[in-house]
């Protein structure tokens, strides 16, 4: 996994509450068996006028001009400002894959849906929860001046607004450690294999029916 330490980037404000995973990446694109290539279909229904198809070239498709990412001033945005309950709905990891593939490194919102929040950390994408007033200030500053950049510092757990206001955020120590170092958490868990085996032995005695092999 690509590590996340400190990131400075253009922020795009998506002023919409309850953005669900079907909006982030519609179902027809979940048919892929790869982890990459979802960026061109990120927010497909909000972004394009027509219905997108998997494996379709997107360059010539009609754009919805009012959608934030279609505005020239937000080209190259790498920090997404969002509203409450971002990422609600399904467990599809294609949602963070699409955000990452598009070029986003961080999403900042007043709240996230649990599964989406968790999935972000597995993909080097940092979800940040800030207070609603702090989010309002970021929206205002980013909208006021074209090219406004935001600084996200995971080590210090701070977000710095374009005007220099600094907001702190909370993050789990373990997730922070993995993200800072780009660690594969399967490898880390396997270091505890003797604890897993010990648990299994104990459990096998208490609940042997859980360990029977499946007849085909």
């Amino acid at each position: 996994m690509r590590p996340f330490t400190k990131h400075t980037g253009l922020a795009a404000p998506l002023d919409l509450a309850n953005v669900d995973t079907d909006m982030i990446i519609p179902k027809q694109f979940l048919k892929s068996i790869k982890r990459t290539g979802f960026g061109k279909n990120l927010f497909d229904e909000l972004r394009y006028e027509d219905e997108g198809q998997p494996d379709q070239e997107c360059d010539g498709r009609p754009l919805r001009k009012d959608f934030i990412l279609n505005q020239a001033r937000y080209t190259g945005a790498s920090v997404l400002l969002a509203r409450q309950n971002f990422g609600c709905g399904s467990s599809r990891e294609h949602a963070p894959w699409a955000l990452d593939d598009y070029g986003f490194r961080s999403v900042i919102a007043p709240s996230f849906a649990d599964i989406f929040y968790n999935n972000c950390f597995k993909n080097g994408l940092l979800p940040i929860v800030l207070e609603a007033e702090e989010i309002d200030q970021l929206f205002a500053e980013v909208t006021a001046r074209e090219g406004a950049q935001v600084v996200v510092d995971l080590e210090a757990q701070t977000v710095t607004s374009p005007s220099g206001a600094e907001f702190t955020f909370l993050v789990d120590n373990f997730r922070k450690h993995c993200l800072l170092n780009g660690l594969d958490d399967i490898g880390l868990t396997l270091q505890e294999d003797s604890a897993i085996r010990r648990y299994e032995e104990k459990r096998m005695n208490a609940a042997p029916w859980l360990f029977l092999s499946r007849e085909q």
Partner: peptide, 13 residues
Amino acid sequence: GIGTSEVEHVLAT
């Protein structure tokens, strides 16, 4: 529910 990275995590560990 879990994401695909966790599907892999559970398969492996």
